[in-house]
Design a protein around this nucleic acid. Structure first.
Lengths: 143, 143
DNA sequence: CAGCATCCAAATAGATACTG
DNA sequence: CAGTATCTATTTGGATGCTG
């Protein structure tokens, strides 16, 4: 991979509505999937359902279940059931999931590093639209 | 950054529901934002509204508007209005947006490369649950 | 061309109660 | 513990018509 690796996104390929990558992206591009993959990657070991639930603050049981199911369905995580009592279920990354996790973790890290900068831009944007209800042309525009 | 750069995701940081990075991630982790950033990065030049609309198959005018607004708000893209007639508006990447685009493009590329593999896993998963309506414990499970 | 406004359908998320 | 089921609230998305 070099400086022109983006070439593989390829003109008019990922953008096509019938490109299979879209359905993959829709799974990855969901915040909870991103966090699940990041958490499993960070811990670097399988995690149990409620452990994930505790780590991922704010996720509901329903969303966690759905997210885990979607990731398992796509072969990104494994689900291992230990028929003990009480039952024990562990979720771990597959090779594929580990790769995907590397990408989503990169986004998580980048977001943390630039959060302040972005929130600042956001605040300024919100201020500017309240004092100027977004006309088609704003002051200071070119030609 | 090295092989352990994931350490910066940092135990219990991005996962906190009050972590500012979450709001950033929610913008990036939306499929249309991902495609917009990827398209602008691929073309490597500002693009007009309808040009983006044509490239991103399936997006509606409303979704494109909302996505562009969100990205502009976060300082990831610029919006330049040329008060000509008919009006002309160009969207370009900021430095921040270009960085973010590198990460989202990586996801798009990876998804394309592994789409077949993932769709195969997906098909097998779907087959297995129809013949076995997902009991708590499935055959072949460990002790 | 580049949008905004509105209405409506559908998908998503949350809360709650219950089970092997 | 690790879910499923159900009901509801909110969000999201699409279609359509209009404007500077």
């Amino acid at each position: 991979m070099g400086t022109t690796s983006r070439a593989s996104v390829g003109r008019t390929l990922v953008y096509r509505h019938d490109c299979p990558s879209r359905t993959v992206i829709e799974v990855l591009a969901s915040k909870w999937a991103l966090y699940v993959l990041a958490a499993l990657r960070e811990r670097d070991r399988p995690m149990r359902f409620n452990e994930l639930r505790r780590v991922l603050e704010g996720i509901t049981q329903k969303m966690l279940t759905q997210t885990l199911r979607a990731l398992e369905r796509d072969g990104l995580i494994t689900r291992t059931v230990y028929p003990t009592v009480p039952p024990r279920v562990e979720y771990g990354l597959t090779t594929l999931g580990s790769e995907a996790g590397r990408l989503t973790s990169a986004i998580a890290e980048w977001s943390m590093e630039h959060a302040q900068e972005i929130l600042k831009a956001r605040g300024e944007f919100d201020d500017s639209i309240t004092e100027d209800p977004r006309p088609i042309t704003r002051s200071g525009d070119p030609v």
